[in-house]
Amino acid sequence: MKKILVTGATGQVGTELSVLAPKYPQYEWIFADRTKATLDNLELLQTQIEAINPDIVFNCGAYTAVDKAESEKELAYTINQAAVALIAKYTAEKNARLIHISTDYVFDGTSSIALCEDSKTNPINIYGESKLDGEIACIKENPESIIIRTSWVYSKFGNNFVKTMQRLMQERDEINVVNDQIGSPTYAADLAKAMIDIIESPKWIPGIYNYSNEGEISWYEFALSIKEFGGYNCKVGGIPTSSYPTPAKRPNFSLLDKTKIKSVYNLEIPNYKKSLKKIFV
């Protein structure tokens, strides 16, 4: 029986994988939170991963506090680059499969067309830099890896935009949401299923892939959909990024082109509204 190690097991994608896992009893699933796969302590992580000895690693663990990363660069790099290099090196040595999750933040947001896997990277914040360097380390240490770039991840679990909007729309009469950052949300359950579909596929084609739900929207339009499905009475206004300054810059445009992952792994990707509805059931 093949053993799958899931790092970042308490995060959104990790938790959605744990929901799906019982449907795949042909695998031994190891869900490792930060106490079992300690990504900020490389010496300990090496010992932990050797003890688990996985056949497949889903590396869902990451430092994702985008604004905080501006002042915690060293920690962000340890988790998003050094730990990735260690995991990739281990999987290469053991001939184990590795699917590593990355981000749309590796791009600068200046594109006006959907970004392909070979579009020019140019991160504009520390988080994006650390994730891009993690990708580079992953490919260098294990060229047989699969890297999935995703965007705007949400789920019923953890902290995310959808849950924040649900809370604010029930607490307030009026909120404003940025309307000039364009992309597409990713329902973590859909991404988790895609990862399993890749492992279940008879083929393994290494490289970088994009994955998000279908649709091209702004955060403001995303908020309007949340309002619609939740039946909230809160008034939602659209504002420019300049009216909502944050410590870290965000890319203005990070819509991902999913043609490659759909064609190589024959995946059907739902429209964002179809997936968003599931949060409200």
Rank of each mutant, 00 (worst) to 15 (best):
F31H: 09
Q46M: 11
Y63Q: 01
D173R: 11
K273E: 08
D257S: 13
S263R: 13
N59M: 09
N266S: 14
H100R: 07
K274C: 10
I49S: 08
Y187T: 00
K156V: 08
A9D: 11
G238N: 11
I175D: 12
N125V: 07
S71V: 14
T78H: 03
L168S: 07
S119T: 10
K227N: 05
S201V: 08
K227Y: 09
P25A: 06
S102W: 09
L17E: 00
L98A: 06
P270L: 08
N266R: 13
N266F: 14
Y211N: 07
D257P: 13
K203F: 04
Y27R: 12
D55H: 14
T150A: 04
P54W: 00
E117A: 02
S155M: 07
Q26Y: 08
W219Q: 15
I208Y: 11
M195E: 04
I101W: 04
E16M: 03
D108R: 08
I124F: 00
E129M: 14
E216D: 10
S102C: 05
L132W: 12
I239G: 00
L45I: 03
F107M: 07
P25M: 02
H100S: 06
I126P: 03
D197F: 00
V264W: 13
R149F: 00
Y220S: 00
N179S: 15
K68T: 11
V153C: 03
S18P: 01
G215S: 04
A188V: 02
D190K: 02
A21L: 11
L276V: 14
K193R: 08
N179L: 11
L224F: 08
M165R: 03
P25N: 07
C60D: 07
K193N: 12
M195I: 05
S112N: 09
Y265R: 03
E50S: 09
G109M: 01
A189M: 13
A21N: 09
A32F: 13
W29L: 06
E70A: 06
I208H: 13
L5G: 10
R172F: 14
N142G: 12
I52C: 12
K89E: 15
I182H: 11
D33E: 14
K258S: 07
A51K: 09
R172C: 08
Y187G: 02
I146F: 02
D173V: 03
L44W: 05
V84C: 05
T91M: 06
E129I: 09
K131E: 06
E117S: 01
D40A: 05
I79G: 05
E228H: 06
L276H: 06
I279D: 07
V84H: 02
P251L: 09
N122C: 10
T7V: 00
M165N: 08
M169F: 01
E214S: 02
F253K: 01
K260M: 01
E70L: 06
E171G: 05
A37C: 05
F222C: 04
E144V: 03
K260T: 01
Q48A: 06
K273I: 02
I52K: 09
G238I: 07
Q81M: 14
G215L: 02
S130T: 15
G8I: 03
S119E: 05
P143W: 07
N233R: 03
M169C: 00
S145A: 15
V6K: 02
K277S: 14
L20P: 00
G158R: 11
K163F: 07
I279F: 15
I30D: 08
E171F: 06
I147G: 11
T241I: 11
P22G: 13
L5P: 12
A88D: 05
